[in-house]
Computed example of a mutant assay.
Amino acid sequence: MIGYGLSARTFHLPFIKLQPELELVAISSSQPELAIDYPQLSHYPDANALIANSDAGLVVITSPNHSHFPLAKAALQQGKHVLLEKPLVLSSEEGQQLTAIARQSGRKLAVYHNRRFDGDFLTLQQLIRSGELGNIHYFESHFDRFRPEPRARWREQAGPGSGILWDLGPHLIDQTLCLFGMPRAITANCRTLRPGGESTDYFHLQLHYPDKEVVLHSSPFCASPTLRFMLQGTKGSYQKFGLDPQEDALRAGAMPGGTDWGLEKATDYGVLATVDSQMSYPTLAGNYALFYQQLVAALLHDAELPVPVVDALAGIRLIELAILSSELGLRVEVVG
């Protein structure tokens, strides 16, 4: 494990511990509590030292976004499998290079888009497959927060890969690509709205498809209950507020597993509406552990990765085009 911040402690280590096929052997971090929390492991203050000296077969990289490419490249060249926190990298060119290196080295390159395993997103997929809403023509996805003042952390400071578009944008884009594939064009507005802000803290992306429109949105000024999804079709619509409960449970120190893991309270269910009725629609259970289960199957049995790298690369390309659209103030066509 490279990094011992929120991502490693909350979204990776609990699920690594669940997998009997995986053994945590080393962590690279300068945080002093590491020696207390994991005294039995090999500790490396430098990530490159871990890559060069550890005999680990899989390296999980949770360090800041700008370090993803060089660290993943080094690990692959050392013959190690790599799991990168999202975003995969910060450019299409970097992603293509990593893909080529992984192919040449015969190693797996995976990216952690865990929100494919959010219960509300699994529910969306079920609704679309069932045809209950008819043909879908509008989709809206929000990841809003109430954080009106910038925080002193790398994600909100100036620098490559910082800002909310690189933090939450990959989640919303990846889920949309899972549902509908690549759009024909994108129109984006990416802003720094908070006083004293150093990086993008607001985005509004509109993805243009031949038969539908998609809006992806994030604001730091949403103090009210937050809209998560709006799905509208020819037979009805589905509206969902609030976030999947897994993150809050993990932050509170709960260990994943058990029959009630990832289940929402009935009061948090979304609403399915038609011309004649309106009903609470149960949310499927979310389960981030499925990501690691599928990753293990890919490493040991050459099964398909939980998130194909080609999907992650498509998401990076859309972020690049969103930045271009915002800078130019124009709709940008998606080529290829």
Rank of each mutant, 00 (worst) to 15 (best):
L88R: 00
V59C: 11
L127S: 01
L124M: 14
A102Y: 04
S162Y: 06
Y44L: 04
Q126C: 12
A49E: 11
R115S: 11
Q77Y: 07
V59N: 05
R147I: 10
L124I: 15
I164T: 10
A47H: 12
S54I: 04
A100V: 06
F146P: 10
V60R: 07
W166D: 02
E85P: 02
G161F: 04
H142R: 07
R155T: 07
A56Y: 10
L165V: 14
G57H: 12
L177H: 02
L133Y: 01
E149Q: 13
G95S: 07
D167N: 13
F117K: 00
S91A: 06
E132W: 07
P87L: 08
L165N: 06
F117C: 03
R103G: 11
P160G: 06
D120H: 10
R116Q: 14
A110R: 00
L179K: 04
I101V: 12
V82R: 00
F180V: 07
Q77N: 10
F121K: 07
Y138F: 11
W154S: 10
P160S: 12
A152G: 02
V59W: 00
G119Q: 10
N53M: 04
V89C: 11
F139N: 01
L83K: 02
G119I: 06
I173W: 02
I136M: 09
T62Q: 10
L83F: 03
F146I: 07
R103Q: 15
I128M: 13
Y112H: 13
A56I: 04
I173Y: 08
G57F: 10
I61V: 09
G134R: 03
L58A: 05
L83H: 00
D46P: 04
N65C: 08
L58R: 01
R116L: 15
G131K: 06
I101E: 03
S92H: 07
S42M: 13
A47T: 05
V111R: 01
D55E: 13
H81T: 03
G163H: 03
V111P: 05
D144M: 08
G161W: 00
S162H: 03
D55P: 10
S63E: 08
C178F: 10
R129I: 08
G131F: 12
E94D: 15
T176V: 13
S92I: 12
N135H: 13
A74W: 02
L165G: 11
D46E: 13
Q77E: 14
E132L: 15
L179D: 14
W154E: 14
N65W: 05
Q104H: 12
I128D: 07
D118N: 13
V60C: 09
R129M: 10
R129C: 11
R129V: 09
R151E: 11
S63R: 02
I136P: 01
D144W: 05
P170D: 00
L90I: 03
I128N: 05
W154Y: 13
I128Q: 12
S42P: 05
L179Q: 08
R145H: 15
